[in-house]
Each structure stands twice: as structure tokens, then as C-alpha cells.
Write a protein that binds this DNA or RNA. Structure first.
Lengths: 136, 136
DNA sequence: GCATATCTTGCGACAGAGTCGCATCTCGGC
DNA sequence: GCCGAGATGCGACTCTGTCGCAAGATATGC
């Protein structure tokens, strides 16, 4: 972060929360946690920070098949694209990356002529244990 | 549609609009078109109908990489999953299906143990002509 | 250190998406 | 045609996200 973008107390806080979070957060959840450290932190700041980080490619936006409502979730960007597998029943989220996924990406780029900048693969279904539990 | 679900004038209208639409519609767009035929049709009815159709697997929900705002789009469900490729610059939407996509799906199911019920692959980038146009 | 131009924040107001309860209406089975 | 389950329309509401603006913080030059 150089050239006119400032590292403020608020941004430091928000970034550290996103990076430390074991699960994916949405804007409201992020705000709630941040407020525990800084009660005056505003919703608008959260959205502006998210927009900034998204813009610079530091986080990714997901919606996890809209398991609960229409929220969007955010996660620190890893070097490799991966997909999210969400269980409709228990809400578990699995992450998945593989060579086939990378290959499919390349195939799509080649056939469509697109310069791909973002990929999002989300899968919804029943996880193994919920399949057993729900043999109705 | 049997067993307690009624085919009302409103539902017939909404379903036909979704099926006839050449492009993906969001709830607001659907409402707007529907109002041309039935001015008293309400927002709530649109959402309730979408929920019903989604529930029965007759339509799919997409968000097309949030190209314009946070809307969700809907499309009549085809027999084959396919992915959407959106151009960030001109907003064009391409659809794409391939064997590799099907294979990846199977691979994910096998490795994760999930029973897959929904897949959504969305790709964002620059389409071929926008790449040429934007050689800056 | 300190001043200062510039970037950010917090706040309030706002727009839009989506949901809910309830009275009224209507579909479809008899 | 009649009737009851199921839908609709309406209004009120919550939640997400955005904007303009005054006040506050930050990095830089001195």
C-alpha cells in the first residue's frame, strides 16, 4: 500500500480481523467484531475498506450459495483459486482446490477469448454426515 | 405443480416472462416487466414466486460477479450445469458448458463426499473485444 | 518536532432488496 | 355455483450498501 493510501488504525483492525478469522465473515459480522475493539467504527468504514481491499485484490468476495440470507462473505486471498462447498443442512464450508479446477479455468479462457480476472466456483449440497443423518 | 400449489394468473405471467427473456433478469426487472401486464402485481409476489421456483429447482439464481450492484439474477434451469462468464467492461454475459466442467463436478463430489445439489461457476474478466479496446 | 495538504472517518440521510403479517381475494375440487 | 386452502396485495419493517459533508487523522516536508 503506497501512494496516497493510508494505513489507519481502523484499516489495520479490519484487515487483522479478516486474516485471523477462522470462518468467512460478512460485512455485518466484521463490523460486530470490530466494534468490540473500537465501538465508534462505522458501517461505512467497513464497506469502504472492503471495497478498497477487493479493488486491490487482497480479499475475495463470496456468497456461499446464500446459505443464510443474501449476505456476502469475504476471505483473505490465497495464491490459488479454490472453490467453496457448502452444506445446506449443517452449514459447513469446505474449501477445495485441484489441478482440474486450474485446467478448467485455462480451457474456459482459451475457448472464450476472455482474459480471466476472477473465478468463483460455489457448490451446494449435503455433506457426508448430513447424508447419513437425513436418510428419510 | 401439484398438491396444493396453484397456477395463478400471476405465476403464469412471471414464469412466462422468465422463460421468454433473452437475458437474465433480477427481481426488480422481473417486476417491472410484469407490471406492464398487471399493474397491481406486487414485489412480494415476485419474491414469493422466485422462492417457490427456486425451491422446486425450476430456476437458478446467479449473481454474475456483481457486475452492476448486488442484484441477483434468475434463469430457467437447463438440464446441464453451465458457467457464466461476465465482462467487467461491457457487461456481456457468455454461457459455457463443457465436459471438463462435468468432470470437475464429479471429482469434487468424490473427494469431498458431498451429495451435490447445486453448482455455480462464475467467471469475470475482459472479453476479447474489450481487451483490444483497452490496450492502455 | 511541527505544520499542512490530503486522505479517512463518523455521522446522518438515503435508496434498494427482501421479508412478514394480515385482510381480502381466487383457484380448483366437489 | 360453493367453499376452503392457498395466494395476493398492501403496508410496515429490517437489513445491506451508498453518499455528502464536516471533523479528524496521517504522512510528508521542513
Amino acid at each position: 500500500m503506497k501512494r496516497g493510501v493510508r494505513m489507519t488504525r481502523q484499516r489495520r483492525l479490519l484487515v487483522s480481523i479478516i486474516q485471523d478469522s477462522p470462518r468467512h465473515l460478512d460485512a455485518a459480522g466484521l463490523l460486530k467484531i470490530a466494534k468490540r475493539e473500537d465501538a465508534r467504527l462505522d458501517r461505512a468504514t467497513v464497506y469502504r475498506t472492503i471495497a478498497l481491499l477487493k479493488d486491490r485484490g487482497l480479499i475475495d468476495e463470496l456468497d456461499l450459495m446464500h446459505i443464510e440470507g443474501e449476505k456476502h462473505y469475504y476471505e483473505a486471498k490465497t495464491n490459488r483459486d479454490h472453490c467453496h462447498i457448502a452444506c445446506f443442512r449443517c452449514g459447513a464450508i469446505l474449501e477445495y482446490a485441484s489441478r482440474s479446477f486450474e485446467k478448467l479455468k485455462q480451457e474456459i479462457a482459451a475457448q472464450s477469448g476472455f482474459l480471466i480476472r476472477a473465478v468463483r466456483l460455489e457448490v451446494g449440497g449435503l455433506c457426508a454426515s448430513c447424508q447419513k443423518a437425513a436418510h428419510s
